[in-house]
Design a protein around this nucleic acid. Structure first.
Length: 951
RNA sequence: GGUCGUUUAGCUCAGUUGGGAGAGCAUCGCCCUUACAAGGCGAGGGUCGCUGGUUCAAGCCCAGCAACGACCA
């Protein structure tokens, strides 16, 4: 083996080999249980970030763990077409390279362009995923716009429409004025900010007066410009100030429109002025109020969110109406919405109608893609009626058919599902699944799998002109079909029978609504068992937290704190990192700041750590679904761990290769250490399996770390040295046998988390265990073997450790070189002490560096010594010429203080009658034993203190 | 405002049915001992956010408060 651990020299080649050998594919033996994970399809425009690395490490660990247990495992790979994001990428590209817009190309040519982009540059993320060691079945890679998947999407749309679960309507939607498309409520980010509240005076018509005798109402609004579209003012029917005015009218300033005063609970008497202007075409709450009171709707904004040349007037049902005229004051026409706001406020002020302006914290909706403020807009859109779909989806989680890990995320799921709103699925984009709907010239809509099918079904001959709906479907509509669409639905394929329902979904909490909930709804509606029972898409949803930067801030490009997982794998120098973080930015003005924090945080760039160290770190921090602050030091620690494993393996191989490791059935004489490490290892297997079975990757990582470093390396390897250097043939053989077999099995145990280093070492170690197999990937996962846990060996070795630690402690405290051999005297030894000493002299001499071990009789006087206690046994190291009196007194003093403190606590507890009467006997016995031991310890330490003090 | 979560060593985090406060990293001291200085050996370090309650016993259970965070409105 190479003298130093160098991940870069092993990882890439291994992955290519695995992939070429087809180890990632399901083995196909359907007599074995299947185990399936569907990867959350990454955005085809995306690149790998920490969240991907985190989730994929978990998925790969699970899939490797199950594969090694012989299951027919499928980890399905693919990407999604990311409608808006992809279209934006290509639009920017043609703008930059050819100075063209998509309209210059036209729809068909533009889509061709997008496909070209997709085929050349799309999915670079899948190459990055290979670097992580992900054992995905690449031959089955899917894309949400590929042919089969598009069939599934169309089929679902048509069937839902035929079942009345999809409808079209003119509704208020979230409109992105920059991207010119509707988006669903989930794609809106509400941001808190310090805004303003304008108090506007609205004169009452026909001489009406308020209870206080005023001839006007004051409405408070955060959006004064929308007053151009007001069709009412609401007051609370219980509000004595104004309820007398219900039914009266306002004369709306600027447009001189008469609008009614209505009584509605929406007007909060406590808030603002108690009077609310109602603009049904530009506000979701007002829309509802308008519907309740049959107020017409006046649209005053263009799709750019500028003031229209002429308003559009609709009835509550969305039909064109002439209830009001459509004239808008000339001066505002064509104004951008915020310019119009300023102008209108100024005009109110000029007219003496601006009462006041207050600071007012409010939440403002932003489009998560375009980044501009969303405008509620009255448009024709397609909707999924989600309520009926949600019912079954809720039940599946209630009944435990689907479990969330950690469970608290079920609350989030339920609260959203129980209050679910209809889902706007149409998008005014070109890139995506075009909606399979056609209109005749009268505007009548027909839905079908093709124009031909539509004509046939509705007996429309060639004379009837049909025009296809131009809109495409929300990308999440197709992602919602991921679990069954990838397996060949709507065909009833063998894959569906074998791999569906899938087992585990690993995802972030942020897409529970976007994706998880919708996937459950869609799957349960379309996938049925033979007996008609709905199939769930997956049995467990493992929800991860977010990985944040070292200060707990969310990673984002605009903050410049994004960490590329591959930079941690390969390393990156500071200049490249700065260039990478500040290049290609949406807001170049932030570059300087980003450069500064980058230079500060990563003064020396990022070192290479290798994929295994990254994966181990991610596993180690995967605890309970909460967010994690990324800590570079932990990554370093786990790289050191990989290095430790590497070097320990080198030791094992150096000792065992070309030696007799028990392969030839010659006699073996196992040492205490051999028996002990087997037992320790078995307990590790048990802990590790339990952790993986319960999704506690952190506990699995911890168990592996603890065993490998603190037991196997720190103790066992050291304990093999006296045997391998001085033991008999049979002892050496047994120890070599234990070394190679424990290591071999340990590598299998760790493989799901750190696949590369384990495979590399395993290739060398396995032959020494008489194993012939091509890869560790398909070797069996270790099982707990209780009969290999030798209790007596465990106890004896624990005693041995304590003995050695006691000597080392004295050396450390007394500044005695570890190289200096010591003589030790033992007093008050029990029979079992004597046996243990006799059996383990070689170990003691070697690990504690003792030249002589001498037993004293109980009444024998010992020379002045540094002392340690092990049970009743006294370990004495004669001080002559070695020990500093003051230092030894200080050392004893510290121990005494600690022992006395403990004793006091235990004694206090035991003298409490209530404790003795009520606590379980076992607990009391334990305390009594502790008390006795502590008393002895205190006693002996005092004696020792006196002895030393008397010198 | 509602829901959920978090608060444990300097930092990042574990702590399973209530029964002696843990890990990694960082810190301090000593060591280039033939697997490993990305290391070895030893040591120090915590009022478990605050207050109260239940209990023989609370980091853990209950109530209230505070701070922070997420989602929803």
């Amino acid at each position: 083996m190479e003298k130093t651990y160098n991940p870069q020299s092993i990882e890439q080649a291994l992955y290519q080999h695995w992939e070429a050998q087809g180890y990632f594919k399901p083995h196909g033996d359907t007599s074995k249980e299947s185990f399936t994970i569907m990867i959350p399809p990454p955005n085809v425009t995306g690149s790998l970030h920490m969240g991907h690395a985190f989730q994929q490490t978990i998925m790969d660990t699970l899939i490797r763990y199950q594969r090694m247990q012989g299951k027919n495992t499928l980890w399905q790979v693919g990407t999604d077409h990311a409608g808006i994001a992809t279209q934006m990428v290509v639009e920017r590209k043609i703008a930059a390279e050819e100075n063209k817009t998509k309209h210059d190309y036209g729809r068909e040519k533009f889509i061709e362009k997008v496909w070209q982009w997709k085929n050349h540059s799309g999915g670079s993320i899948t190459k990055q995923m290979r670097r992580l060691g992900d054992s995905l079945d690449w031959e089955r890679e899917r894309f949400t716009m590929d042919e089969g998947f598009s069939d599934a999407v169309q089929e679902v749309f048509v069937r839902l429409y035929e079942e009345g679960l999809i409808y079209r309507g003119k509704r208020l939607v979230n409109w992105d004025p920059k991207l010119h498309t509707a988006i669903s409520d989930l794609e809106v980010e509400n941001k808190e900010q310090q805004g303003k509240m304008w108090h506007l005076r609205y004169p009452l018509a026909d001489g009406a007066q308020t209870a206080e005798g005023k001839d006007y109402l004051v409405v408070a609004t955060t959006r004064p410009e929308t007053m151009l579209g007001d069709t009412g003012v609401a007051v609370n029917p219980a509000d004595p100030r104004y309820n007398g005015l219900i039914g009266k009218e306002i004369l709306l300033p600027i447009v001189n429109r008469r609008i009614p005063i209505v009584g509605d609970e929406h007007a909060d008497m406590e808030k603002g002025t108690g009077c609310v202007k109602i603009t049904p075409a530009h506000d979701f709450n007002d829309y509802e109020v308008g519907k309740r009171h049959q107020l017409p709707m006046i649209n005053i904004l263009t799709l750019n969110a500028d003031i229209r040349e002429q308003a559009e007037v609709f009835t509550t049902q969305g039909e064109p109406s002439d209830a009001y005229d459509n004239v808008l004051p000339e001066k505002y026409r064509g104004m951008e919405r915020f310019a119009a706001r300023d102008a209108i406020v100024a005009d109110f002020e000029a007219a003496g109608l601006l009462v006041k302006i207050e600071d007012h914290p409010n939440t403002v909706p932003y489009g998560d893609r375009g980044g501009v403020i969303i405008e509620p807009m009255l448009t024709d859109q397609w909707y999924v009626r989600t309520k009926p779909l949600a019912e079954e989806a809720i039940r599946a989680v209630e009944d435990g058919e689907i479990k969330f890990v950690p469970q608290q995320y079920e609350n989030m799921y339920f609260s959203w599902m129980r209050d679910i709103q209809d889902w706007c699925i149409s998008r005014q984009l070109w890139w995506g699944h075009q909606i399979p709907a056609w209109y005749d010239e009268a505007g009548q809509v027909y839905v079908g799998r093709s124009e031909q099918e539509v004509r046939q079904k509705h007996q429309l001959d060639e004379g009837v002109k049909l025009r296809r709906d131009e809109d495409v479907l929300d990308t999440w509509f197709s992602s919602g079909l991921w679990t069954f669409g990838t397996l060949g639905w709507p065909e009833q394929t063998d894959d569906l029978a074998t791999f569906h329902p899938t087992n585990v979904l690993v995802t972030g909490f942020d897409i529970i609504f976007f994706w998880v909930a919708r996937m459950i709804m869609m799957t349960m509606h379309f996938m049925k068992d033979k007996d008609g029972k709905s199939q769930v898409p997956f049995k467990t949803v493992y929800v991860t937290g977010l990985i944040r930067d070292e200060n707990g801030a969310k990673m984002s490009k605009s903050k410049g704190n994004v960490l590329d997982p591959l930079d941690m794998v390969d390393g990156i120098d500071l200049e490249s990192l700065v260039t990478k973080r500040t290049g290609n930015m949406m807001q170049p003005q932030l570059a300087q700041k980003i450069e500064k924090i980058t230079r500060k945080t990563f003064a020396n760039g990022i070192e290479a750590h290798g994929t295994d160290a990254l994966r181990f770190t991610l596993a180690a921090i995967a605890s309970t679904g909460r967010d994690i602050n990324w800590d570079m030091h932990r990554l370093e620690g786990y790289r050191n761990f990989c290095n430790k494993l590497w070097n320990a393996s080198r030791y094992v191989l150096m000792q065992c290769e070309e030696q007799d490791c028990g392969q030839n059935d010659q006699p073996m004489d196992f040492s205490l250490a051999d028996r002990w490490i087997q037992g320790q290892y078995q307990q590790t297997v048990k802990a590790c399996r339990e952790a993986l079975d319960s999704f506690r990757f952190d506990l699995a990582a911890q168990a592996l770390y603890e065993f490998t470093w603190n037991q196997f390396c720190d103790w066992y390897l050291e304990l093999t040295k006296p045997i391998l250097f001085k033991g008999s043939e049979a002892q050496m053989r047994a120890t070599r046998y234990t070394l190679v077999n424990v290591l071999e099995s340990l590598l299998r145990l760790m493989h799901p988390i750190i696949p590369f280093i384990t495979e590399t070492i395993w290739q060398r170690v396995a032959p020494l265990c008489r194993l012939k197999a091509d890869t560790i990937m398909l070797a069996p996962y270790p099982q707990y073997e209780a009969d290999k846990v030798d209790e007596m060996a465990m106890n004896d070795l624990e005693w041995l450790k304590q003995f050695i630690l006691a000597i080392r402690n004295i050396r450390g405290e007394m500044d005695i070189s570890p190289n200096k051999p010591l003589s030790v005297l033992l007093r008050y030894t029990s029979d079992s002490d004597n046996r243990r000493i006799e059996e383990n002299k070689a170990f003691l001499s070697s690990l504690a560096k003792l030249e002589q071990i001498q037993l004293l009789q109980a009444d024998e006087v010992a020379p002045a010594s540094a002392t340690a206690l092990l049970g009743e046994m006294e370990i004495l190291i004669p001080m002559a010429g070695l020990i500093d009196k003051e230092a030894e007194l200080a050392r004893i003093g510290r121990q005494l203080e600690k022992a006395q403190g403990d004793l006091q606590r235990v004694t206090g507890k035991l003298s409490n009658e209530n404790f003795v009467n009520k606590a379980p006997a076992m607990v009391i016995d334990k305390e009594r034993a502790k008390q006795a031991e502590l008393e002895l310890t205190v006693d002996k330490l005092r004696q020792q203190q006196a002895t030393i003090a008397a010198l």
